[in-house]
């Protein structure tokens, strides 16, 4: 079996409008803008591991999304509530089982899958709860990671992976190619996929998958049930 990526995509279709003067202070993250571009206006979205709620707030303010979140850290949940978001203090590994089938249009897992104990079960629940799943994660196959491990002989510590090995919450790192393998294993259809460079921009060159796996700092996938 050969894992393969779908052909690289053009920039996402409905990117949100440019920033207004009011919200330039808290400029949305580039990967959040990319995710927001994938979500249809007015959709029902569950953000698993929603952090301080900045993606949910973006989706609400720009896409008119009815968003919900799950977040494990208490202070982050409080920050979400302060933004007026509906967020539950909970754990992706245990609490997704409580959600009924097809409850959401999209279930988002942004930079979180590597911190779950059971990535496969989490992904399966996401595809059960939502019509589509959006997953973004740091790519452990990026060339800088390979340099760190292969040449320096050290675990990588950088902006996308800021933790030392002994205090990291990230217990299940994978490469873009590894993730494609998981998608095939659980029967997820890859509708779209991007590799993002260090600036959070999609790698636009039409490259073969091994080049994405080398050049992408992050992988972003839009998945659906087959």
């Amino acid at each position: 079996m050969t894992a393969h990526l779908p052909p690289p995509n053009p920039p996402p279709p409905h990117l949100p409008p440019p920033l207004g003067p009011a919200d330039t202070a808290a400029r949305p993250r580039k990967d959040h803008l990319l995710l927001a571009g994938m979500v249809a206006p007015g959709a029902r979205v569950l953000d698993v591991g929603c952090g301080d709620g900045s993606l949910l707030a973006l989706l609400r303010d720009r896409n008119g999304v009815d968003g919900r979140g799950i977040e494990i850290a208490r202070d982050n949940v409080a920050a979400c509530l302060a933004k007026g978001l509906s967020v539950i203090q909970g754990d992706a590994d245990t609490d997704l089982a409580d959600y009924p089938d097809d409850a959401f249009d999209y279930v988002v897992l942004s930079q979180t899958i590597q911190a779950t104990r059971h990535p496969r079960e989490v992904l399966e629940h996401m595809l059960r709860i939502g019509n589509r799943a959006i997953v973004s994660f740091p790519n452990f196959g990026h060339w800088r990671v390979r340099v760190d491990i292969g040449l320096r002989g050290r675990m990588p510590v950088n902006e996308t992976m800021p933790y030392t090995w002994f205090d990291t919450p990230n217990i299940h790192f994978c490469t873009i190619r590894d993730f494609v393998g998981l998608c095939e294993l659980v029967g997820a259809r890859m509708e779209k996929a991007w590799a993002l460079d260090g600036r959070g921009e999609p790698v636009r060159l039409p490259l073969p998958w091994w080049a994405w796996n080398l050049l992408g700092e992050q992988g972003v996938f839009l998945l659906s049930r087959t």
Partner: peptide, 14 residues
């Protein structure tokens, strides 16, 4: 919270 989720309600929990 589980029941409210199952009912599709808008719920926050902390």
């Amino acid at each position: 919270v589980r029941a409210l989720n199952a009912a599709g309600a808008s719920v926050s929990f902390v």
